[in-house]
């Protein structure tokens, strides 16, 4: 003991240097991330500048995408629309499913079933997106085409006011709807795993007290677990949304890649990530086309940023309330 105490001052001095070095490295790592992010945004913006200059603000709401030499015309509305709509649809499908999975795993499932189902959900996250794309094209798309679009599409199309959402002249099955389904399956594990983990962290005392007051399982979930975990649940959903916005390969396979504004769920469309992946290899350096693609990349960045900001805002107002 006393030996250690005697040696301490000199050791502390040596440790001081190490501490400072470590702090410096950590600071450097933090700043590096910021710099990288800034550099990427800047590169995209500078690359996209010629397109913004050529088309002005109209770039944002033009539906044109025509790389024909001599009369090139590019606009971002269709890819922006497709990106946002497919991601939002995917969230609408995935969140209830993920909630069901998490609820089942934490409250209902017999203990011997929890691990295999939980592992299966996590494994979904490990499947490469190209596999989802191929599976979507070869399995899901024909199913959507035959059993959803051709069977009930016409019936749904007859509904007044909203019928146009389901009526489509495109019968290939690759559509906004298929893309949203594939995306929903892809982001399901992220949301489900987050929900399961945070549901499991709710102190047992809280739940037991509620049960003691005579609450049903659903009332416990609604009034105790969900309020307690709200921040993390929204965080998990945003993680999923972020992934859905940027997903490239799987979407490309099943969305139909049409640069036309879709009016129906079963119409083909395109997303920003998809159009960049499809068109970039054939774009010449310094061409207006490449610049427009970089501008699209910049816009995707902006959209992701807006989504993140909105989620923060939602969380803050809810926390205050």
């Amino acid at each position: 003991m006393s030996h250690a105490a005697l040696a301490a001052p000199s050791r502390r001095r040596a440790g001081d240097g190490g501490d400072r070095l470590f702090a410096g490295l950590c600071l450097g790592a933090g700043i590096l991330v910021l710099l990288l992010l800034g550099a990427i945004i800047l590169t995209l913006f500078i690359g996209g500048l010629p397109a913004f200059r050529a088309f002005g603000a109209g770039f944002l709401w033009s539906t044109a995408w025509s790389p024909v030499e001599g009369r090139e015309q590019y606009g971002a509305l269709v890819p922006i629309f497709g990106t946002v709509v497919s991601a939002v649809l995917a969230i609408l499908v995935a969140v209830p499913l993920a909630f069901g999975v998490a609820f089942f795993l934490t409250e209902l499932a017999p203990p011997w079933l929890r691990r295999p189902v939980g592992t299966a959900i996590e494994l979904l996250a490990a499947i490469p997106s190209i596999i989802y794309g191929m599976w979507g094209l070869f399995v899901l798309v024909p199913l959507v085409q035959q059993y959803i679009q051709l069977t009930i599409g016409d019936t749904l199309g007859a509904i007044p006011l909203v019928g146009f959402l389901f009526a489509s002249n495109s019968f290939a099955g690759t559509s906004l709807f298929s893309a949203a389904l594939v995306l929903a399956i892809m982001i399901l594990p992220f949301i489900a795993a987050t929900m399961r983990d945070v549901f499991g962290q709710v102190p047992a005392v809280y739940k037991e007290s509620a049960y003691g007051l005579g609450c049903t399982r659903w009332e416990v979930m609604r009034n105790v677990v969900l309020p307690y975990t709200r921040v993390s649940v929204v965080g998990g959903i945003m993680l999923g949304l972020g992934r859905a916005l940027g997903e490239t390969m799987a979407v490309t396979f099943v969305i139909g890649n049409a640069n036309r504004l879709p009016t129906s769920l079963f119409d083909p469309s395109t997303t920003i990530a998809s159009i960049v992946a499809m068109e970039f290899p054939e774009s010449l350096m310094g061409s207006l086309k490449q610049s427009s693609l970089l501008a699209l990349g910049f816009l995707l960045f902006v959209i992701s940023f807006i989504v993140l900001a909105i989620s923060r805002l939602l969380l803050r107002s809810r926390l205050k309330g």
């Binding site: 790389p67 024909v68 396979f253 890649n257 049409a258 640069n259 036309r260 083909p268 499809m278 054939e282």
Partner: peptide, 23 residues
């Protein structure tokens, strides 16, 4: 639509590569 490596198709579906079109 005109002639280019990709054009604004008036209708139909886009698929990736020859194999996508064939499928």
């Amino acid at each position: 639509p005109g002639a280019a490596t990709s054009v604004q198709w008036p209708g139909g579906q886009g698929a990736r590569g020859n194999e996508g079109v064939a499928n």
